[in-house]
Design a protein around this nucleic acid. Structure first.
Lengths: 205, 205
DNA sequence: CGTGATCTTGAGGGAATTCAATGTCGGTGG
DNA sequence: CCACCGACATTGAATTCCCTCAAGATCACG
């Protein structure tokens, strides 16, 4: 049997397609399943009682999400656009964990990846708007780009809710980065990183 | 053998005492050990190149920290005041994990606790200064209080760096909460929660 | 090609920061 | 025991960054 969880997960469950903006699971629902993105993309978010929304992360093909190791989900998840996922029952995983020693180790690895992501996200939120935007673009060029052209699956409101900014600030900073010839906004969803070094110089680590 | 990791960890390693403000480990140091607080308290933080600091969490007696499930620490950790810790080698834990099936499960539980803490911290950082402060006080009254009197181990600068605020804002909001008779600042480090319900009404979930 | 959703831009306002001065606490030595 | 000193905290004034509100531009899609 294939013991590489992240790669073999597709052997373990069925595929389901979600329409743009449809809910995959809701916050505080039973976390009976977790998911691997095949195509499309997903936002995980929390909503406050007054309507404010924080997006905790975006998931693109290859990413695993919903693994919160708790009985109930800490986030809601929605398809940003039409999205295909492979679904795996947590109970199935737990059964496998009994017979395959490497599974718990791999779950810990996935957990530590999520933990690092969450810590970096928190760190992002204390930075200036420009730093947040630059960091976001550099993250996206690593994850969702062909060459230096980022294909953004999400709209400005999603970016704003991920970065803890208003939609107007996101727009203004993108335009100011364009004015500084760091990027070029080809369409709303396609951004060319003309000068990644310039973006990097705007971040601090 | 006792299989309750969180409670039995003290059986497994020696005790070490750290002086006030001394470093326990540094960011990106090898994560060979993890720790349980016996007395005193600890701050875990990241520092940006320009000197800004973010405190990711405070640890008080009973808490386990340094468990990042990665080769290198993601945070630095310092004793806030004179602090006694029990130290456990990660290698020891890994050896135990081979012979005791419940250990990996317990590590996952600790990981999920840290994950939830990190997510809540990120959510905190998009809220208003007053909301952050109210939430912090309510968290502390659960963790480090006798009755309704909070004993703060940390100074204002630590609170500021945890909440993503300036020290002046922390001070101003504490004083405004006192003016509103929600709290009473007995000394800089001792705060009476006169009206927890008033604080709760300032938060949103 | 029209229509609604999404995005941009401008003007004004507000929350939190920075800078600067003052106040308070806690420990130490006289 | 108390007065002093340095560290820590508070307060005020001015500023800055980002938000909100409002209007206009652009895009996607039927």
């Amino acid at each position: 049997m294939n013991t590489d969880l992240k790669n073999s997960i597709y052997l373990l469950g069925p595929t389901i397609t979600y329409r743009r903006n449809s809910e995959i699971f809701g916050e505080s629902e039973a976390a009976d399943y977790f998911y691997k993105v095949i195509s499309g993309s997903v936002r995980a978010y929390k909503t406050l009682s007054d309507g404010r929304r924080q997006i905790g992360g975006f998931y693109i093909p290859g990413d695993v999400f919903g693994l919160e190791f708790t009985e109930y989900h800490a986030f809601s998840a929605e398809a940003i656009r039409d999205t295909k996922l492979i679904i795996l029952k947590r109970a199935t995983m737990n059964a496998l964990a009994g017979s395959n020693v490497s599974i718990p180790q791999q779950l810990l690895t996935l957990a530590s990846t999520e933990l690092r992501r969450a810590h970096n996200h928190a760190l992002l939120l204390i930075k200036s708007a420009q730093e947040r935007m630059a960091e976001f673009l550099l993250e996206m060029v690593e994850r969702a780009a062909e060459g230096n052209i980022i294909e953004l699956p999400m709209m400005r409101q999603d970016i704003a809710d991920y970065l803890g900014l208003s939609i107007e600030t996101v727009s203004r900073i993108l335009r100011s980065l364009e004015a500084a010839t760091a990027i070029k906004i080809l369409t709303y969803r396609r951004i060319l990183l003309q000068n990644p070094a310039a973006l990097r110089s705007l971040t601090s680590h």
